[in-house]
């Protein structure tokens, strides 16, 4: 890396007098140029979506484009949540977004809680005990993690249709366990493995029951792992589109947005407002709980 040559000599002299070497100036230039490119790559599609959500359709076709709308408006949000009859032609799709957001929340939380309960118990079992079949059971879970959910959806579709469970939240919660349980057991086990079993043994000598120990000692110690796993599972459920699209009629947010996206009458500005509303929860979670999320990701992939 020798980009310092780009800096003109007089400037370089001034910088050097300020205590900066040629090498460190070069390094800063490279870093901040790359940083700017990186930031543009990440931010531009999001910026465009957010700005579109507060723009009027007429302003979108301006050339050169307006990077910030001249007359910002909340009409798109009003239109998409059905608070206003003005704005775009949203016809019967009015207010569906709030319903879908609620369903996404309910389903995401349910799947996360079920994973922590059922998956947490299993992970603890596999982490601490040797029992007949413990190794083959665990290997099976690892292999199950690799079966692509997208390839085996038809039996779910047929089974739910036959039993009348199609288009219910149960269908989604149940089928989401398919790809979340192997993940959460894997993750939680790696967190449990990192805890020393000595405290549990001491408690057992004191006469505490196994379940009590699990609830009062192990769970608090493994809290970071439980939080990370819960968040990752919630985000997976929130993002899932394929099953939600096939098994329900736009119950959760992704299939609803897909249907907006395919409607010719639905303007991009309104869709952008719906997209912003649906992106906010996962993005906020990822940013606020960054530490847990990154820890979970690296446990899942690297341990």
């Amino acid at each position: 890396m020798t980009p310092a040559t780009e800096v003109r000599p007089p400037l370089l002299g001034a910088l050097r007098r300020a205590g900066l070497s040629r090498r460190s100036v070069g390094r800063s230039v490279v870093i901040y140029v790359s940083f700017a490119v990186f930031a543009a790559w990440v931010v531009l599609p999001l910026w465009f979506t957010v700005m579109s959500s507060i723009s009027q359709p007429a302003e979108m076709v301006a050339r050169p484009p307006h990077w910030i709308p001249l007359r910002p408006t909340l009409e798109n949000f009003e239109a998409v949540i059905g608070a206003s009859s003005r704005g775009n032609n949203t016809s019967d799709q009015n207010a569906r977004i709030l319903l879908s957001l609620s369903w996404s929340l309910i389903i995401g939380v349910s799947v996360a809680v079920l994973n922590l309960l059922i998956g947490g118990l299993a992970a603890y079992g596999y982490s601490r005990f040797r029992f007949p079949g413990s190794r083959s059971g665990y290997v099976f879970l690892l292999v199950a993690r690799v079966v692509p959910a997208i390839a085996i959806i038809t039996p779910f579709f047929i089974a739910f249709r036959v039993t009348g469970l199609i288009n219910t939240s149960f269908a989604l919660i149940f089928s989401y366990l398919l790809f979340t349980l192997p993940l959460s057991i894997w993750l939680l086990r790696s967190y449990f493995d990192a805890l020393s079993p000595e405290i549990e043994e001491a408690a057992m000598v004191d006469g505490a029951s196994r379940l009590r120990i699990l609830w009062t000692i192990v769970a608090p110690l493994a809290a970071p792992g439980l939080i990370a796993t819960g968040l990752l599972v919630f985000l997976e459920a929130w993002s899932e589109f394929f099953y939600a699209n096939v098994l329900t009629s736009q119950m959760t947010v992704p299939p609803l947005l897909a249907s907006y996206n395919s409607l010719q009458t639905f303007s991009w500005n309104t869709l952008a407002a719906a997209t912003v509303l649906s992106l906010l929860p996962p993005v906020l979670i990822a940013v606020v709980f960054q530490r847990y999320v990154v820890s979970g990701l690296s446990h899942g992939a690297l341990k």
Binding site: I118, L121, A122, Y124, Y126, F129, S134, F140, L141
Partner: peptide, 10 residues
């Protein structure tokens, strides 16, 4: 106990 914990999820 370990087996009981592992069975439901598995």
């Amino acid at each position: 106990f370990g087996l009981l914990l592992a069975i439901p999820a598995t």
